[in-house]
Structures are given as structure tokens and as C-alpha cells.
Design a protein around this nucleic acid. Structure first.
Lengths: 250, 250
DNA sequence: CGCAGACTTGACCGCGCTCAATGCGAGTGG
DNA sequence: CCACTCGCATTGAGCGCGGTCAAGTCTGCG
């Protein structure tokens, strides 16, 4: 992933080539036809590369752009007054970060790269101008934001009604689905996030996540060594997570 | 509330008069100037009146419109595969219902009137056409949807990190704020929803909600008799809910 | 090699769920 | 008017899931 790219790209707004991007059918270009694609490419900037742990923005950054993940993975989180963190989403390639920040002058959350990550940047002012001119793109933006709301509601239900096992099964299945969308294996993959992040996202303690992982392993549902995971019995996992055939998050 | 209106209005698309609506500074008209307001009024239909418990739409209704609450109150909920319900929001006058449904052909949730409720209807197709022409209105739509995402994330944090007392304090304060916005008392008001709904929304058992209410009452934080509530010590409540100065939900 | 951070495992305990009984107000009919 | 019911709310007793605390174990990196 992100193989031949320089370690840290100069902040020169490099014009992106959505035409040749393998993610164009997951991302914003999905909405526009061939002729309009160029208008979109005109406003998209190919962003820099972020190393694991680097901030893309935080809640004190003034809001300018939404970002699409090109490779790698991103987590977003909010921090409460008393300093507690809540991860609000994990974003994989093709998914859009920052839709929750389109009100207000600052980002509503903090975005951090979970691994080596490359992103595309959509300056919102230009994006809004463009969506005014391209009804299909506007429609697509509404759809994306609406889906974000839906996914968040699904997460609400997961947290409010489901046990630790159910939550973790749901997350594993969600990741599996999203890997498959990108024509990667939905059976064996590498978790982009630490146990800690999983725990935080799902409202659990790290120890609980760990225990559930080993329990699943003993039951033959998965095989896990560190971040490497193999889903051995997906139907059984779906049984455990007796809800959420739809994914948890974007 | 909704005093002189007929019991059930004929489905004649009655043109709404946002000009004279006391909620115009909370609702969509906020975004548009005097001259554009007429364009908005052209597409808004004054909806019918719903009695307590009536469905406005459910997950099998094909998606056509977003709705603004004019008077009364609405709850939205999603139902999982195994039939469990999760309330995703309470909507008071001036707040917009249906933003989570702007992807897909059907509503993403079920909306039910909690009391005698009057609503305005915004057909989305016309709304999208209009937001294409009025950049300020488009911007406002993005803002509203973005806020909806943020509120949902706040709720996620509440469910994932906070105790029963903290959740309930946060909800009471949220309601208080929202009543005040409409220049009603933020101190003494009547809960639009049953204990059951509060429990479901906050991921608790009814019994727990009941217990916390009486505990708050014994501590002199509130006075509650049925749905009538009086907040006696708001600072203390804010102390209990050590997060969420922002409201939980729209 | 050694240290730090991530992960696992175990022991214990408390918050909030479950189950069950009771209280209470509104609506209904005798 | 009371008796009855039905839905909603309250209160109590008991227990289990998952959090907390505390050791270990594993892993990668300087």
C-alpha cells in the first residue's frame, strides 16, 4: 500500500487523478459522469502521507476540507470535557472523513492515522460550489451524510443492546464486508487498529476485548494472532451478532 | 398547542407560511433571506396532525419527504433483525426529522408522534432542486446533517462511557436547553416521552430510570411527578453529567 | 539485550439487569 | 359512585456481565 510514494510529500496541491483511482466507485466520483469528473478532479488535492499515529486534524484545527482515505486507515474520536476519548469511527480506503464537521468553524473530532495512510483532500468551499452546479454530486453528498447518520445509529443500538461478544462479532463482520468491497479477502485480514481502539469504540474494557477474542478462538470462530485475524466461521459470527448485517460504521 | 386546528386535516397540500412561523429561526428558513423565503414556502406543505402514538412513517414507507416538527414531539427508532427497538432521537418543534433517510428508497427509521403533533413536510426532490439554486440553503442542509452526526456521536459517548445517572442528567439538561431555545421554561416542563422511551434511548432498563429519578429527587436535584419535571439544581445536574454541555440529540 | 507498549490472563466486585410484586392514575362500564 | 382493568411507574431482592486492579507474557524497536 502506498508503495512508491515519497515519505512526506511537499504540500504542493497536486491534482488528483480520480480517473485512474481504483476507489472511484466507492468515493465521491461515483456520483458524477465522465465529463463532470474533471470538475471534481480540479478541486481535489492529493494530500500528503501520514505515518502511524500522526494527526490529520484535531478539534482545534479550523475546518477547511473533507478527506477521502486512499490507503491505510484512519480513526476519528471526540474528547469530552473531562478528557475522556471516544472513538467515533474507523475509516478505510474509499471512505470519507470529516462529514461530521460541516457545521462550525473547527473540526468536530480528531482524526489520526492508524497506519501509513494516504489521503485526498476536498476543500469544502469548492466542494459546495461544485455540488451546487452538479445535482448528482449534491445528491451523493446527502446520501453519504445520511449513511453516516444511519451507521452511527446502528452503533448506538449496538452499544445500548448488545453484549461484548455481539459487539465484537459485529465489528469483525463489518471490517470483513468493507475489505471485500475493495476486493480484498474478507476472511483473513489484518486489523488496522489496536485492541485498545476496539475497546474504546465498542464501549468495552481492553481486557474484555482480549477475553472475547480468545473465547472466539477457543470456539473455533476465528484465529487471531496479534492484529492478524482469520474468520473461520462467518455464519456462526453472524449468529453471535444477531443484528447488524449492515456494517457498524462507514 | 395546536389548539384551533381541525382534528385531522384533509391531505390537501396547504401552503405553509414560514413567514409567520415562530420557529423560523430554528428551522430551514433560518438559511434563506426574505426573497428566497417564498421559494421555500412554495415547496413546504403543511402536514396533517398526528395523535399520540400515530406513525408518521416507518421503515416500509417509501422515502419522499423530510419533516419539521411544528408542535408536539416525535420519536424515531430503528428495529433490528431480531425485533429489538432502539430509539435514535426525540424531536421537538423546530427540529428536522428524516435526515437519516436521504439514502435509499425507504425511510431508515420509524417516526412516531409522542403527543398531539403537527408537522411541515419538505418533499426531498423539490428540496434538492431548491438547495441547488440556493447555496445558503444547501450550506444549511449540510450543517443540519453534520450536526445530526455530531449529536449521534455524543450519544455514542454517553452510552459507552457514562453511568445511568450521568445519562439521565444529560438528557434532562438537553431537554431543558431545547425548551429554552423556544423561550419556554427550561426549569419546569413536561417530558414528552414515557420512562420506557427514556430507558430505551439511553440504553437502560426502565427500572433503572425510575430509580435514578427518585434518587435525584431525594438529593433535591429535581422534582418529578409522572411526566412533570422541575429541575431544582441545574449546576448540580451539570456536575453529575460531567460531559455533554452540548445537547444529546438534535 | 533491555525496555516500553501492547496484549493476555486471573481474581474480585459493583452497577445495572432481571424477575416479581405493588402502587397509581385514567378510562370504562355496571 | 365504585369496581374493574389496563398501562405506566415505582420499589425490592438477587445475580451476572463486564469493569477494575494486578500480574504476567509477548512483541517490536532502539
Amino acid at each position: 500500500m502506498s508503495k512508491t510514494l515519497p515519505f512526506r510529500q511537499a504540500p504542493t496541491p497536486l491534482k488528483a487523478s480520480c480517473h485512474t483511482c481504483s476507489l472511484s466507485k466507492l468515493c465521491l466520483p461515483l456520483a458524477v459522469n465522465e465529463t463532470d469528473l474533471e470538475s471534481l478532479e480540479d478541486i481535489v488535492q492529493q494530500g500528503r502521507i501520514y505515518n502511524r499515529g500522526e494527526h490529520i486534524f484535531d478539534q482545534s484545527t479550523s475546518f477547511r476540507s473533507c478527506f477521502a482515505v486512499r490507503s491505510g486507515a484512519v480513526k476519528t474520536s471526540i474528547v469530552s470535557e473531562d478528557g475522556e476519548e471516544q472513538i467515533t469511527g474507523f475509516f478505510l480506503p474509499g471512505e470519507l472523513v470529516g462529514l461530521d464537521s460541516m457545521s462550525g468553524d473547527f473540526y468536530a473530532c480528531t482524526a489520526k492515522a492508524l497506519e501509513r495512510t494516504s489521503i485526498c483532500e476536498f476543500p469544502v468551499q469548492k466542494l459546495e460550489e461544485l455540488t451546487s452546479r452538479l445535482p448528482d454530486l449534491q445528491h451523493h453528498m446527502y446520501q453519504l451524510m445520511s449513511q453516516e447518520i444511519q451507521h452511527s445509529h446502528q452503533l448506538t443500538m449496538l452499544l445500548s443492546k448488545n453484549t461484548a461478544e455481539e459487539r465484537i462479532a459485529a465489528l469483525l463482520l463489518s471490517l470483513s464486508t468493507r475489505f471485500q468491497r475493495r476486493r480484498l479477502s474478507g476472511i483473513r485480514f489484518s486489523l488496522p487498529m489496536a485492541r485498545n481502539d476496539i475497546a474504546n469504540f465498542l464501549g468495552l474494557a481492553v481486557e474484555t476485548v482480549s477475553r472475547v477474542f480468545t473465547r472466539f478462538q477457543n470456539q473455533g470462530l476465528i484465529r487471531a494472532r496479534g492484529r492478524e485475524v482469520e474468520l473461520l466461521d462467518i455464519p456462526a459470527l453472524q449468529g453471535v451478532s444477531r443484528e447488524l448485517s449492515r456494517q457498524v460504521c462507514p
